[in-house]
Write a protein that binds this DNA or RNA. Structure first.
Lengths: 311, 311
DNA sequence: TTGTAGGCGTTATCAG
DNA sequence: CTGATAACGCCTACAA
């Protein structure tokens, strides 16, 4: 592989001049330009990206940490982040984490090592307190409400639409509601917000028996429905549309009356099932997250979600 | 930011010794180790990733070029590539291309510049002939049958299951079939294979009027259905399950009899609609692509797809 | 076991 | 306009 010194030697000019020509800088004579370009073409020379990055002190890449990839929250978020990054000349590194704290910590260390210019956590298992120190080493963005912690964040405000969802179920005659929740309730902001909305609308906390935890995908929804059937619920507030679809399959296959359902994510399946859903506008959140990552923005930014009534 | 020279100076040892300690290499005295580590902790030192890459001559990252992100083919492919990469200590850079030849060429140039160790094209608009020269600069993998072109490839063999799909429609009484195809038929290997299967089963080429092109997502399916209704088709071979779902919506909303449908991708929607589909096993393809990218494999590797009969 | 010196490839400063 | 030379940080023969 030819390098800039080879070009310099063969063209009879110095590396400084070659560098100027390569980068289209002014103060180069036409003679020099021609001579350099000739050799560049002959040797099929291209500058080395790693050396450039080292010299420039940045990578122009943003690390995006996602615990999983087969969930609409994460796919739409990473997609919008990627789109926004591309538009600004940044590239996106996909960093899978499986909610493993050790892996997350590893990425944080890589940030310190300047492997990325910034890190976006679409979600994380690590306590915010352990992430915070790294904001000194580089830009860190989280995609949920960080509360009083002072860290860059872009997220949806779910509170109101969760109340709307519960209210919709109540208005349609639901008496005994079950909920599909992600991960353990304590760890998940989503779970907490959903349970809080229930309490607000119904005046009492949702009994633990009607909370099904760790429901993340369609297959989980199918399993979870089984548990709620045993509790004789007449309505379900689901963690996602595709998940709700799994539950519907269970009810149908067992010739049971399908309960009232409210989904989330505004996926195709809620259209097909004709159930209400919530659009969290992750496209917007993703763009905000990226703008935070590249320093266009800073601080906390929340986006209002939208309840989509149907039927 | 402290660097290795600072550590050397402050610890009283040379950069070589510091480097050995940092990287856990042998031939370092306990004294040296202790002294170095003490300073490392004091200054909170971490080695610089860019400098390491430059020195090592590799990036440990694989570029994955995808024309779009909201399509199951690309999401499941990139997901499986990412999983396989992670397992091997490689990282994945997400490279959106929108089927733009200039952008694709740009990524190829970046490969020459050593920005990535390898490039995987999940699909591409550039002619193979223009990609081929770059295989000298780095590893390039494509995810479709490259025919006689000698380039690393991992892909599904769609031919047989496409024939099965057409046969299923014929067996169920279909007389007038319409097809949803991706992009212009000439450019897309999928389109060509689907049309070829039709010809094989029905003995004549599918009339152009019953080919709807550029059908890529659910909304497109809805639009495309409208065109096929005008042609009075009694069956549809779709480019994807979610796309088929869009068509079904159109038929239902207009109170028309839903035709026989065969989908693709084995998505949730085909389960809900209870239509046959084709599983292309992209998870396997993705893993093969990555193994090609990192040099575990070379040459062409095809995976057989599976026809899933329903109803 | 340790250190020196050179290489990885580029960019930028500053004197000419 | 041009060129030496010093960063950018790290790794590693080779010598001691």
């Amino acid at each position: 592989m030819a390098n800039i010194h080879d070009i310099a030697r063969l063209s009879g000019f110095s590396v400084a001049t070659v560098s100027r020509v390569i980068n289209g800088r002014p103060y180069v004579s036409d003679d020099a330009k021609a001579a350099v370009m000739k050799v560049v073409r002959q040797l099929d020379y291209v500058p080395n990206a790693m050396a450039r990055d080292l010299s420039a002190g940045h990578t122009m890449t943003i690390g995006v940490v996602t615990p999983m990839r087969d969930h609409p929250y994460f796919t739409s978020l990473t997609n919008s982040i990627t789109r926004a990054a591309f538009a600004r000349g940044y590239r996106v590194m996909l960093l899978p984490s499986q909610y493993d704290q050790a892996i997350e910590a590893d990425y944080l260390e890589q940030l310190r090592m300047k492997a990325y210019d910034a890190l976006i956590f679409t979600s994380h298992a690590l306590p915010l307190a352990e992430i915070l120190p790294y904001t000194q080493a580089g830009v860190v963005v989280v995609c949920h409400d960080p509360g009083s912690v002072s860290i860059n964040a872009a997220f949806t405000d779910r509170g109101e639409t969760y109340v709307e969802g519960c209210q919709w179920l109540k208005d349609h005659g639901a008496q005994k509601i079950g909920m599909f929740l992600p991960r353990t309730a304590k760890r998940s902001a989503t779970s907490q917000a959903m349970l809080k909305a229930y309490q607000q609308v119904f005046g009492h906390p949702l009994p633990a028996k009607r909370q099904v935890l760790d429901v993340m995908n369609n297959a989980d929804g199918y399993q979870a429905a089984q548990k709620l059937v045993a509790q004789q619920v007449d309505a379900i507030f689901s963690n996602g549309d595709d998940i709700a679809a799994g539950a519907v399959q269970y009810y149908r296959e067992h010739h049971l009356t399908v309960p009232l359902i409210v989904g989330q994510e505004n996926q195709l399946s809620s259209q097909l099932l004709d159930i209400p859903t919530i659009d969290h506008h992750f496209r917007v959140v993703g763009e905000l997250a990226l703008r935070l990552a590249v320093g266009e923005l800073s601080g906390q930014h929340q986006v209002a979600s939208t309840f989509i009534s149907r039927g």
